[in-house]
Design a protein around this nucleic acid. Sequence first.
DNA 1: CTTACCTCCTGCCCGC
DNA 2: TGCGGGCAGGAGGTAA
Length: 276
Amino acid sequence: MPELPEVQTVVSTLEHQLGEITFKKARVLWDNIIAYPSVKEFEKQIENQTIHEYLRYGKFLVFKLDDYFLIAHLRMEGKFYVQDSKEDITKHMHVIFDLDNGKQLRYHDTRKFGKMYLYPLVDNFKTLPPFKNIGLDAFDDALTVDYLKSKLKRKDPMLKVFLLDQNNIAGIGNIYADEICFSLDLDPRTPMSKLSDEKLQQLIDNTRMILREAIKAGGTTIRSYTSSLGVDGRFQLQLKVHQKEGELCPNCQNEIKKIKVGGRGTYICDKCQKKL
DNA sequence: CTTACCTCCTGCCCGC
DNA sequence: TGCGGGCAGGAGGTAA
């Protein structure tokens, strides 16, 4: 499940591999991947468009083209591959882009949860519909304690639920939410109202530190994530609690347990992580 | 307005 | 062995 660091890795890798490349044609093999516009318009509009910028916001990939923003969200298992046209198109390839260097950019997604959008250029892509309910990116300078507090007016969600809500901080998913809670020594079920300003600042700092480390490591690999280079598991950030049920806490050797928080599988050390 | 539930999908794991 | 059922999961949609 690609989160901010994995998406950043994909964006950087594609930029490195492709640079200012031009799409010749696109073939959509599974219609529901294209969220906007229609499949027909998508295929037509992308023809002869050149990629000029490779951007990321939260978990979204944003490609600035001549006349459009191509926006993609990988959701659970989406992956991009750059492959030779002669290579077999395997089972879960759903969108094939012909490039002007003879290769193809291929979108692979086992569960078909991913989405792509194509919108005419605007000054700020953040004003486009896919970003309507997306809060500040984890690395946005405007992300401050006051900003977090503004998101908590009349609301008191549990810590992990708050972290996962893209309307608050964009980019955190189930893996890093667990790691952030662990780094804060807090039970993920802790109500946000219990966090002091100091703890909120620590939340921001730790989030950035953990995501930055993961980007440095090339994005964590869990089960399905492979970077667009086809690298899988070569870089693996050392996770401390996520997916570690039954293993020992690196801090206190207590057994890590799996619980449910907000309907999501959640891993905690109940000795280190206290509910305030 | 908010919260709970449903939907999209497939692979995997479990029990029989 | 093989089959069916249940489950996981990001985020948008809908019902209450």
